[in-house]
C-alpha cells in the first residue's frame, strides 16, 4: 500500500514459484479457481504453429482442468490450431455459479480467436469462439474480464493485434455466442516476442463503481485509462518518461484508486497515481 506523497519501496526476496505440473507448457501460469475449478493450465507443448509471438515457437496443444474433487480433464485441440497463450482465465461469464475458461486459440491458417470453454454434461469443451482474425499470425491478447458497463453483463476485454493495430475490444458471451459490443483505438498490452501478456490492469479509477482499464498506448509512450461506461471513453492519458516495457502492477493506496507500477525502457520504474 502506498501512503502520502512520498513513494517508497521495500525490496523483499520472495520464494520461487512452484514447478509447473508435468506436461505443462514451459512458463505456463497455473490459474487457481475458487469454485468448481481448482486449477487449470496449458499443456502438451507443440511447435506446429510457426509464430513465436510469446517469446518462443512453443505453444500449447491442450488445456488441463483440475476440478475441486481432484479429477482432471483435458481439452485437446486438433492439429489445425494451438492455444497461443500462457494462462487460462477463469470467470463466471454467465453468472450461473460455475466458472468458464477464456483462452486464446490460434488457427494455423486463420490466426487467433477468443475461445470460451465450459462444462457441458460433465465434460469441459469449447462452447464459443470469436471469428479468427483471418490469416496466419495476427494475434489478440485478453486485457481483463469484468462488468465494464455496469449493466451486469460480464465482458471480456481484449486487444486485437496489440503490436500493429491496438484495438481494445469488448466482447460478451450471450446466448451461447461471443459478440463484440464496443471498441476503442490506440491500446497495446503486449510487446512482440515477450511473455509479458499482462500490460493491462483493471480497477475503478474514476470512482463510478465500474471497472476501468489501464494500458499503454499503441506506441507505449503513454498510459491510457479508459472506460466502457456509459460509453467507450478515455479517462486519462498520462505521458511516461520512457516507453512501457513490462506488465502493469497495481498498488493499493490508503484511499482512492490504486497506483499503477510499470517498468520503463530505461530500466527504471514508474509509479502513476491519481491525485485526489
Amino acid at each position: 500500500m502506498l501512503t502520502g506523497e512520498r513513494i517508497s519501496l521495500t525490496f523483499v526476496d520472495v520464494a520461487a514459484q512452484p514447478r509447473p505440473p508435468d506436461g505443462a507448457l514451459p512458463d505456463a501460469k497455473v490459474t487457481t479457481g475458487k469454485d468448481d475449478i481448482a486449477r487449470a493450465w496449458l499443456a502438451e507443448p507443440t511447435t506446429r504453429y510457426d509464430h513465436g509471438i510469446l517469446g518462443n515457437k512453443i505453444e500449447a496443444g491442450s488445456l488441463v482442468i483440475e476440478t475441486r474433487d481432484g479429477k482432471r480433464q483435458t481439452v485437446r485441440l486438433k492439429d489445425d490450431a494451438v492455444f497461443e497463450d500462457l494462462e487460462p482465465r477463469l470467470a463466471d461469464l454467465d453468472r450461473d455459479g460455475h466458472d468458464e475458461i477464456v483462452v486464446v486459440k490460434s488457427y494455423l491458417k486463420r490466426g487467433s480467436s477468443l475461445a470460451v470453454i465450459a462444462e457441458r454434461r460433465g465434460k469441459y469443451e469449447i462452447v464459443a469462439e470469436a471469428p479468427p482474425l483471418g490469416q496466419p499470425h495476427p494475434w489478440l491478447d485478453p486485457a481483463g474480464i469484468a462488468d465494464f458497463t455496469g449493466g451486469g453483463t460480464i465482458g471480456i476485454a481484449l486487444v486485437r493485434q496489440p503490436h500493429v493495430i491496438g484495438s481494445l475490444e469488448l466482447w460478451s458471451w450471450r446466448d451461447g455466442a461471443l459478440g463484440k459490443t464496443a471498441e476503442l483505438p490506440d491500446i497495446a498490452n503486449h510487446i512482440a516476442g515477450t511473455r509479458a501478456i499482462d500490460m493491462a490492469a483493471l480497477a475503478d479509477f474514476d470512482g463510478d463503481g465500474i471497472a476501468d482499464i489501464v494500458a499503454p498506448s499503441l506506441d507505449r509512450s503513454r498510459l491510457r485509462v479508459v472506460s466502457f461506461a456509459p460509453k467507450p471513453r478515455e479517462i486519462a492519458s498520462v505521458p511516461l518518461p520512457a516507453k512501457a516495457v513490462t506488465n502493469l502492477g497495481l498498488v493499493a493506496e490508503s484511499s482512492g484508486p490504486p497506483a499503477i507500477a510499470v517498468g520503463l525502457a530505461d530500466g527504471s520504474l514508474a509509479v502513476i497515481r491519481r491525485a485526489l
Binding site: I7, L9, F11, A196, V225, A236, V238, P239, L240, P241, T246, N247, L248, G249, A261, V262, G263, L264, G267, S268, L269, A270, V271, I272, R273, R274, A275
Partner: peptide
C-alpha cells in the same frame, strides 16, 4: 495524475 520516476537499485526487467 502524477508520474513518479523511481530509480530502482537494479534494472527493472518485469512486473
Amino acid at each position: 495524475w502524477r508520474v513518479s520516476h523511481v530509480d530502482a537499485p537494479a534494472r527493472v526487467s518485469g512486473i
